[in-house]
Computed example of a mutant assay.
Amino acid sequence: MLARSAYSVPQRILHWLMAILIFFNLLFPDGMNAWRRLIRHGQTPTPADIASANIHAYAGIAILLLAVVRLGLRLVSDVPTPPDDQPAFLHYIASVTHFLLYALIFAMPLTGIAAYYFGIDTAAFVHGGPIKSLLWAVVVLHIFGALVQHFYFKSNVLRRMTIG
């Protein structure tokens, strides 16, 4: 059986849809932050505050649900093999980065749900602090790795998650 040269169309759609939602929530947490600040100070949020916070929450829940589908699809579908002509440590870094991405993609919405819907302050701190910072770092590493693969190593790693 020949190895796949690209991810399947559903895998690519899930990847990019999740990327958009993750960037949206990382870049625009203002509604949730305003809601949390009001609640913490004993003030009543306006319907607009609640709606803005809900947008952030619903995007996070969508990320979690898409991550479950994506992980299930990954478990039942073949994935392209890593490039052969590169140092082994790059394969290790890629594996660790992908593991961390999946872990953080699950941890971020779960801690957000715990904070927003159940009022767990520790979850709010972890969600908006260490997990958010680590997610940013791993996302940047992931993008950097894809660009290095494409421009320096001239591999098909970036193409197989974009145009196939």
Rank of each mutant, 00 (worst) to 15 (best):
P87N: 04
K154T: 13
G128K: 02
R4N: 07
H127E: 11
M108D: 12
D30V: 14
I105A: 12
S133M: 14
V139D: 10
I113E: 15
D78T: 05
S8A: 09
L38M: 13
G31F: 02
F24C: 11
V79P: 00
H142V: 05
A123V: 05
P29G: 01
G112I: 03
M1F: 14
P109D: 05
G119I: 14
P82C: 04
P29L: 01
L147I: 08
F125Q: 10
L73S: 01
I61T: 03
W136Q: 04
V140K: 14
F23C: 09
L158W: 05
L2K: 15
F23P: 04
Q86R: 15
L100W: 06
D78S: 00
A114N: 12
S8M: 08
F118G: 08
K154I: 10
D49S: 08
I13L: 15
L147W: 02
H150W: 12
A3K: 14
L66T: 02
R40H: 09
F89Q: 05
L104T: 11
R160D: 01
I61Q: 02
A115R: 10
G145V: 14
F118E: 09
A94Q: 09
R37C: 01
I163V: 09
F106M: 09
A123T: 06
D85M: 04
V9T: 15
